[in-house]
């Protein structure tokens, strides 16, 4: 780890001003990912701007019923918040499925969105990696990729996004609030994460030096009946092999509204729009759930070691939606 300067920002505008024009500056939140990356030699900032103390640590219900979550709210506080647990239970579950109690006490919402991939080649600085050293190549595509992407990847990068929280946020149409040098701006989550293409090192649409100030969840009654499930190689304290956030509203056996998002299958939390469209207005049966999953996964391009993720996600979709449908019927 090379030497760096450290400073604390007292306001959002000040933080952004401190960052302006310095590509080697980084905002420091909980540090659970950034400090790890610095120790691993993946990140080597010249200046850290500590934003943990900014007044962005609140969760509020806005007048229109949406939920505003400040960027420095810790994962623990997010998951423990009564409004989150009541209105978006899958979000609380997703957060609780991530990392460990210690890390959730430190990690922030803003930092969670910006987590880097857990690809072993990305973390091992002796390896080529297009994310870390653009143009150096992606050894994972032909190497070890058992836990890599099946959707939306390119030959330049097959890494996945590791966030659990982000999967629930994707299902619930989260909008990311940012503060740029030009002032505040809003980025819906689908626009926040960029497609991999041939620029896997550019992961988000966040302008240089911009600060995430919060996330807004629009009101979504369907989310009150939602669930998150994570499948991993250890019962706890492990990244997902696949995860799924699902919400379902059924009336008279017909799907009125459904939300589906997948984790650990793509470079970003994967909103399963095709599956949602396939299901909406149709019967809430296991066959329909499977057909919807197949429709979504038709775009999957599995590699040698991760082909299992296709049936895994399909099985999870059927199991989760069946569970939610049975619950609704009770």
């Amino acid at each position: 780890m090379r030497e760096f300067r450290y400073g604390r920002a007292t306001g959002v505008a000040e933080a952004v001003a401190l960052h302006a024009g310095n590509p080697e500056a980084r905002f420091l939140g909980g540090g659970t990912n950034l400090v790890d990356l610095m120790k691993s030699g993946v990140e080597s900032p010249e200046l850290l701007i500590d934003v943990r103390g900014l007044p962005l640590d609140r969760i509020e219900v806005a007048g229109d019923g949406s939920l505003r979550i400040g960027a420095t709210v810790t994962n623990s506080d997010l998951a423990a918040h009564p409004e989150v647990r009541r209105r978006y239970p899958a979000l609380a579950q997703a957060v609780l499925a991530g990392a460990s109690g210690q890390l959730r006490n430190m990690a922030t919402v803003g930092g969670n969105l910006l987590q880097r991939t857990r690809c072993g080649y990305f973390y091992d600085t002796i390896q080529p990696c297009n994310k870390r050293r653009p143009g150096s190549g992606c050894p994972a595509v032909t190497g070890e990729h058992r836990n890599h992407a099946i959707l939306g990847w390119s030959e330049h990068c097959v890494a996945t996004h590791p966030s659990d929280m982000g999967v629930a946020l994707a299902a619930f149409d989260a909008v990311v609030s940012v503060h740029t040098a030009d002032g505040p701006a809003q980025l819906p989550l689908p626009d926040f994460y960029l497609p991999v293409g041939d620029t896997p090192h550019r992961e988000t649409a966040l302008p240089p030096g911009a600060l995430i100030t919060g996330v807004t969840l629009p009101p979504a009654p369907v989310a009150a009946r939602s669930r998150y499930r994570k499948v991993r190689e250890r019962a706890s304290y492990a990244f997902a092999n696949a995860s799924i956030a699902a919400a379902l509203d059924i009336r008279d056996g017909v799907v009125r509204e459904v939300r589906l998002a997948f984790g650990a299958v793509a470079s970003r939390p994967w909103r399963a729009g095709t599956a949602e469209r396939t299901l909406t207005g149709g019967p809430a049966t296991a066959e329909a759930f499977a057909a919807a999953a197949d429709a979504e996964l038709a775009a999957a391009r599995p590699l040698t070691h991760n082909e299992y993720k296709v049936p895994l996600v399909r099985n999870l979709v059927v199991a989760m939606l069946t569970e939610l449908a049975e619950e609704a019927a009770r």
Binding site: G120, Y121, Q127, E144, R234, S236, Y237, A238, F239
Partner: peptide, 25 residues
């Protein structure tokens, strides 16, 4: 331990990648 044949390096040489049983297991 998962070894990358191209580089000869372990691709999961840390405790996040090399899983030992956790309490929940």
């Amino acid at each position: 331990g998962v070894r990358d044949t191209a580089s000869g390096s372990l691709v999961n040489g840390d405790l996040a990648g090399y899983h030992v049983a956790s309490n929940a297991d």
